[in-house]
Nucleic acid binder design. Structure first.
Length: 369
RNA sequence: GGGUAGGUGGCAGAGCGGUCAAUUGCACCAGACUGUAAAUCUGGCCUCUUCGGAGUUCGGGGGUUCGAAUCCCUCCCUACCCA
């Protein structure tokens, strides 16, 4: 068994547990910083760990294109290559089928891409996605899925679900790395019946973990929040549940409240690079002139390296001067903020006070001036 | 004292008779960012505005013209060269 999941406590639908992997344990609910190209942008692994991360993401599509999955394999695997010895989850490239859609042609066989790097043609099939992730040596691999946009018409949505199920089967069939767990991905958009159907088929295939894909792809956040409880409830209780690509802090809490265990999102790092800081009083834009002389730390009660040592005024200066330390420090903070939130959420679940914790967080974030 | 090249919006720098409130970059102001083609992108940036427009701008003054940032005269200023 490549991974196992221990459920340690619940509070309503919310769950606290531990995902055990060959490279270490992950307490849940967990947030996974995104390191698409074999790096959490701007941060060393030491910084990522110090910020509180237990597990990070890598990406099949990007790493296969460059430097190449066989190269990574030959150099000892992704953990060694990037010097991260904790757990790694690799995304399958399914999201790139969505986000690079203008250059992608999808057939039942696979997704034909044009490389965003040099335009060269390539095809990502379910089998190839499995192979790449096995070469990378991640602890958790994702099946290749088709992730339609939120406004896709019902027929397209249904077809994407059908294809995602077939592809999941092929991925499972092709998978052969015992120390790697493969998670399936439920699609279906906001159609709960379709979601349930998709989940049922995938659960029958008995994967060690299940993800909800196809959220935060253009729909209103409230619509996603409303759909999550039912979607999560379709998944096995004794296996980890992963909400892919989500989201803002309030989305993570909504997910956790619905019974989701794992999250990933580029938001803390990308927004950090773009001078937006998540704070206990809501998001702030450190490029704004009002922070020019603000001696306070980025977030008032944050214990991260950034907040322990630097002022908002200094961060404002770094971004104004275009200094690379600005994005780095703010990525450190934002990741720490997300991970602290998950740690507190976990404690609140175990202490059966998750809903009041969530309500308090939302009240504070929304009270911002 | 003589010559030459110039003086355009916070700065740099286009424009050289009408389509110019004036290209562009920087700076500045604000916004966006959800399984990362993103240290990126979008909008604003003379004044007023009922957002339809309206009013004042291109060193100062005067002139030519239906019309001038653009042509002429004059004054002021800057840079370089010659005495």
């Amino acid at each position: 068994m490549a991974i196992s999941f221990a459920l340690e406590g619940t509070c309503g639908a919310a769950r606290a547990g531990t995902v055990r992997t060959p490279h270490g344990d992950v307490p849940t609910p967990a947030f996974m910083p995104v390191g698409t190209q074999g790096t959490v942008k701007g941060l060393t692994p030491e910084m990522v760990r110090a910020a509180g991360a237990h597990i990070i993401l890598g990406n099949t599509y990007h790493l296969a294109l460059r430097p190449g999955d066989e190269l990574v394999r030959d150099l000892g695997g992704l953990h060694k290559f990037m010097n991260w010895n904790g757990p790694i989850l690799t995304d399958s490239g399914g999201f790139q089928v969505f986000s690079l859609a203008s250059q992608v042609k999808i057939t039942d066989h696979g997704a034909k891409f044009k490389s965003h790097i040099d335009g060269s043609p390539l095809e990502l099939t379910p089998e190839r996605a499995v192979e790449i992730q096995q070469n990378l040596g991640s602890d958790i691999a994702m099946v290749l899925d088709e992730c339609p946009p939120a406004d896709a018409d019902p027929a397209k949505m249904r077809a994407a679900v059908a294809r995602s199920i077939k592809w999941a089967e092929r991925c499972k069939q092709h998978h052969s790395r015992p120390q790697q767990a493969q998670f399936a991905i439920v699609q279906g958009g906001l159609n709960l019946e379709l979601r349930a159907e998709c989940a049922k088929e995938l659960v029958a295939l008995d994967f060690p973990g299940y993800a909800l894909g196809g959220f935060s792809v253009g729909e209103a956040p409230e619509a996603m929040h409303a759909a999550l409880p039912a979607c999560a409830a379709c998944l096995p209780e004794h296996k980890p549940r992963y909400l892919m690509g989500v989201g803002r802090p309030q989305d993570l809490l909504a997910g956790a409240a619905s019974g989701i265990d794992m999250f990933d999102c580029v938001m803390p790092t990308r927004n950090g690079r773009n001078a937006l800081a998540f704070t206990s009083d809501g998001p702030i834009r450190l490029r704004n002139a009002k922070f020019r002389r603000d001696a306070a730390p980025v977030s008032s009660d944050c214990a991260c390296y950034c907040c322990a040592n630097y002022s908002r005024a200094y961060l404002h200066h770094l971004f104004a001067a275009n200094e690379m330390l600005g994005p780095t420090l703010l990525s450190v903070h934002n990741i720490a903020f997300y991970l602290t939130l998950m740690r507190e959420a976990r404690a609140a679940i175990l202490e059966k006070r998750f809903e009041s914790f969530r309500a308090a967080c939302l009240a504070r974030w929304n009270a911002a001036p």
